[in-house]
Design a protein around this nucleic acid. Structure first.
Lengths: 191, 191
DNA sequence: ATGGAAGCGGAGCATCGCTCCGTATTCACT
DNA sequence: AGTGAATACGGAGCGATGCTCCGCTTCCAT
């Protein structure tokens, strides 16, 4: 994951590299405007690139989504341990961390839905989120369990998917507050 | 809702009536096999009917879904008041009722997702669930609030949508238990 | 029986995901 | 610089799907 840019075993052609950058920018812009389900043709048009080029660089839509949001997911993952070191209870740290996660998800039209769906093609998206965030979530959960603050029968994966699900369609409904419901879920964990 | 079959203001043709029945049966069968997102052509083929016939009887997919599940939704709605009369606390009644709702949703592939999406075409599905279930949910919530068991800042609509969202994609993942998470949500309501 | 109203069917158009391959571009080597 | 092979590009095209539209069929009141 870190030796991906440094080790140019066989140098990538200049036009290919340039197109990848252009594509990432175009995809990010289109995702904001039309959500992560936007037609591939739209992204290709925005990047002024053929569709073949998209599929060559990012074989599945999930790969493109991961590439666009990798930094933000990583930031969320890194925030977990940091919150645990602050002088607040583990349960409070969990609350704060869940807030960060919800903040991230609700602003990405369709991302939460794509995350949950293990439809073919979204596998790598699913995998990336799981790999990066489940360990962090479990670390915080374990700390809270050790402090006797929460029950023990809910795993990190399950909690994360629950929170993720609460964020689906959370952006086009004024009467629905994903933050509040996620807070309820976390509150329900208390012993 | 009840005078729909009795009052034949202008008698419907026999073949039309028969086709409607056949379609409902075919749709129910296909929904079980392929989920509520199954291609319209598949339902038409199963019913040995043209696609035009489907769209004539059920202008949107939502109308068909509502027609198929109306009885079960009604049964869930009617269970609410009944639970409140049993000699258990309002909060326990809420728990039981939420279980019924989750039971219903998780066995209908794709229904929870369709419910949340207010994509054009799903409006009437959304509306039917809201009309039937939100009042019931609020009735139980009010009883629990009156008993001082839960907080007051979560509305019936919001809770229902939260529960519904927890049920999305809940059927193809052994490590994800919508019941447990819904229970957490309800537990989190406690004062 | 019969004519017009009600209903039917499925061809057809549009959209979208994804593939495939002829063409264009880049780059290492001379 | 020239050159040829490796690499990358583009977009036509296929299949799947939602939905419409209209010529044809079926029903039923008379």
């Amino acid at each position: 994951m870190t030796d991906r840019d440094e080790r140019p075993a066989r140098a990538k052609r200049a036009d290919a590299k340039r197109n990848e950058t252009v594509l990432l920018e175009a995809a990010a812009a289109v995702f904001v405007e039309s959500g992560v389900d936007a037609p591939v043709r739209e992204i290709a048009a925005r990047a002024q690139v053929g569709m073949g080029t998209i599929y060559r660089h990012f074989p599945t839509r999930a790969d493109l989504i991961v590439a666009v949001y990798r930094h933000q997911v990583d930031a969320c993952a890194e925030a977990g341990p940091r919150l645990l070191t602050e002088r607040i209870s583990p349960h409070a740290a969990l609350s704060r961390w869940v807030e960060l996660f919800v903040d991230f998800l609700v602003t990405k039209h369709g991302l939460a839905a794509a995350l949950g769906s293990d439809q073919a093609g979204f596998a790598s998206l699913h995998a990336y989120f799981i790999d990066r965030l489940v360990p962090v979530c479990e670390q915080i959960l374990d700390a809270a369990i050790a402090a006797g603050e929460i029950r023990k029968d809910v795993g990190g994966y399950e909690l994360l998917r629950g929170i993720g699900n609460l964020c689906i369609f959370a952006d086009d409904d004024a009467d629905y507050d994903a933050h509040r419901l996620a807070g309820l879920l976390v509150a329900g964990l208390r012993t």
